[in-house]
Design a protein around this nucleic acid. Sequence first.
DNA 1: GCCGTTTTCGGCCCGACTGTTTTCAGTCG
Length: 585
Amino acid sequence: MTSAPSNHDIANMMYTIADTMEIMGEDRFRYQAYRRAGDAIQELPATLSTYRERGELETLPGVGKAIAAKIGELLDTGKLTFYERLQEKVPATVLDMLRVPGVGPRTVGRLYRELGIDSLTTLRKAAEEGKLNNVKGFGTKTVEGILQGIAVAEQLDRRTLLFDALRSAEAIITSLRQAIPSIHSISYAGSLRRARQTIGDLDILVAADEPTTVVQAFTTLPNVTQVVSSGNEKATVYLHSGLQADLIALKPVMWGSALLHFTGSQAHNIRFRELALARGLSFSEHGFKHADGTMLTCATEEEAYAAIDLPWIPPELREGVGEFEAAKAKRLPALLDIADIKADLHMHSSWSDGKASIREMVETAKTLGYQFVVMTDHSAYLSITNGLDAARLQQQALEVAEINAEFAARNDTFRVLHGVEVDITPDGALALSDEVLAGLDVVVASPHINLRQPPEKATERLLRAIHNPHVDIIGHPTGRLIGEREGADIDIDAIGRAAAETGTFLEVNSGPDRLDLDALSVHRVLDLGATIVVNSDAHHPDHLQWIRLGALTARRGWATSERVANTWGYDRLMEWVRRNDTKVS
DNA sequence: GCCGTTTTCGGCCCGACTGTTTTCAGTCG
């Protein structure tokens, strides 16, 4: 790839610089500055090039003159001389050792400098040969821990999908509630509560009158395979799934401050505490400490934010990038409420590759409280299994009409719209003719094959589909599968602008491994004036509930209910769709 | 290296848990 490094690439570079400097034993405030900048860059809704063009790099939190210059060099040349010099002193294989749980930069630095250990391999060898036992501060337990940690690092090198983490956390919560009915409050916290697309480990927070008994119940849950640590109010375990789970138990009076603290993000916490310090208050999970040592506890998060004159900030926005400014200016968005979703606009039946009949899908959709759904089976195209051609679409229309007639006969206002998920070919054409598409209520157009096109081609492909008068929704715009394949490398600004101009909706696909568009792209296209939809893409009645994942992703992208067309209701949505048929291509 | 309602210098978020220890450094979140 010759294209400029992405925000993600540059954020990672900042983290690597920070780790390297810390290993080298440099001033901790210097390397922490790089970490802060990395945090900010990672959460930016627009590309760093965009900020630089506007001369706004130095307005970003944690980015000053020096780091702005380094970002500039990276954008221009794809390289960073400063980093290359660091690499000569500390090779990448040394940084690899940081992946071992319990081994941090100080330890890596000592191992590297004092013993010349420069990779996971040499670390394991040294530990097995007993060479570490002679080092000051290394006892038998430490060496044992390192050996165990290496195994963990090599085996468990992946993050868990939001969906799996939610299920796992909710199961733990149910078990603990059953085991200890006197639990006051219980919630998951951490990146799961912020609804990140993948989760490193679970954080479960409990308020109870006797916290220690909760910790005991937690470490003895049936699906706990190993207790890593266990104290009076905290414990860390590994679950059968390999997932790490942390429990924090405390008194109910501290619930608010603790929930805030353990929800993070780190960047959010740091900014929160700086604002508290400016008011002479030191904040921790226990509450606010005044200069004279007296404590102010917070039973709710609202109380904690109120103590520094801020409204409650939704967890999904707590990434330390813009939420405090918005809160101070009383401009926090009223985020999408999943209860406002009145329709699911993308689902499949056994007419194509779904696992249930239209009736079965619809019956389940009704239990979710929707007004209507759109049945969007695949178009016949290349690898798509059992996709529908014009003739089968006509047959399917009859079944849809029949179901609607049954509803009408029962005075049930629920209805099923007849749509399709038509393939976008590699050059941006559609796999069904305009004539066929014109006969359908709603058209979702999605890319499924040839997702590794050059950026210009991938973008042009989607732009052509967006401008097609029959296309109402672009489904899973990048086609990415989290942890499996990168999506198409599209110019999200161009896509967002075109969607805003034409009125074509951009989808947040709720598939657990899709979440496509992702939250940052959602934020960006909304800023550019586009409207989004949140759809399940269900292939089975059970999948309809996935919409929760898409809704959380939209919330992370600062989406309000108003900007999510699923909340509009039938009349308004269909009026928009009809008007769109006249958009200029 | 960044930053400002104690501003252009002198600070920089906070605490639990662990291991190897007689008082604490390192890791983690």
